[in-house]
């Protein structure tokens, strides 16, 4: 490392412009465990004039980078990597690394400073395909439409029996409320929204106020009726 830097210093004397090598490596993780998964990958600065391949060990070295700020990105076919901002200073010895999110201003650099040498982490593997929806009887039956259909069909058969077994008092009550609703509906349909609404509000209010008070009573009645029947 020191030797190469010495060499660089020597060469910089000739070219009169300080240039640094940018070193880094790829961190193997669960997303991309080894080089064989990655296939070819190239680490580029800006639009690729300065670049480096990644070796099997995961390391890369972009040689002779003149001072300035750069956008570092890894070009991989199957994996996505974060992009970074690299600042190569004209005096200091090592470049500084900051995260950069596309779409945010490039300057000023993010206040988060990352370690140098650069570490690139595979963030995700591209999923190119979508799964085809196969035919599934359960999925078809659990469809809300199918559920409603099934429920109606069942009710169609079950209704007469329920009606038969119902208490005559309940039946009357139900008929009454049904009639009320019909009235509201017809009022709505005929355009008399106001009266319809009023009827609805009234209808809603009525059972509420009545229900609050009468419910225990009615249940008693029901219970009693039931008991009576049994006797």
């Amino acid at each position: 490392m020191f030797g190469s830097r010495l060499l660089l210093v020597l060469s910089s004397v000739c070219s009169l412009a300080l240039a640094l090598d940018i070193r880094g490596s790829i961190l193997w993780n669960d997303v991309c465990p080894s080089f064989s998964n990655l296939s070819s990958v190239r680490v580029v600065l800006n639009d690729g004039k300065l670049s480096s391949g990644v070796t099997r060990e995961g390391g890369f070295l972009i040689p002779d980078v003149p001072s300035g700020s750069y956008l570092l990105s890894a070009l991989s076919h199957d994996y996505t990597f974060d992009s970074l901002r690299i600042d190569v200073p004209s005096d200091s010895e090592s470049p500084s690394v900051h995260p950069h999110i596309l779409g945010t201003p490039f300057s000023p650099a993010s206040s988060i400073a990352l370690a140098y040498p650069v570490v690139l982490t595979p963030r995700g593997k591209n999923a190119y395909y979508v799964a085809r929806e196969g035919f599934n009887v359960m999925a078809m039956l659990s469809n809300p439409m199918m559920l409603i259909m099934g429920f109606t069909a069942i009710m169609m058969f079950a209704m007469p029996y329920i009606m038969k077994n119902l208490d005559p008092q309940m039946l009357e009550e139900m008929n009454n409320s049904q009639k009320k609703m019909m009235g509201v509906q017809s009022a709505m349909q005929s355009g008399d929204i106001k009266s319809g609404l009023a009827a609805l509000v009234g209808a809603e209010d009525e059972p509420k106020s009545a229900g609050a008070r009468n419910q225990p009573a009615s249940s008693q009645v029901k219970n009693r009726g039931g008991k009576n029947k049994k006797r």
């Binding site: 800006n46 639009d47 004039k49 300035g68 700020s69 750069y70 956008l71 901002r85 596309l102 201003p105 490039f106 300057s107």
Partner: peptide, 28 residues
């Protein structure tokens, strides 16, 4: 260097380039 890619269809033009502001304000 200029690597501007462009396509023109009907009344629609799309072009693509690398933006490198010399003041370092934008890059990408």
């Amino acid at each position: 260097a200029c690597h501007v890619q462009a396509t023109l269809a009907e009344n629609w033009l799309v072009y693509h380039y690398f933006d490198e502001d010399l003041q370092g304000q934008s890059k990408g």
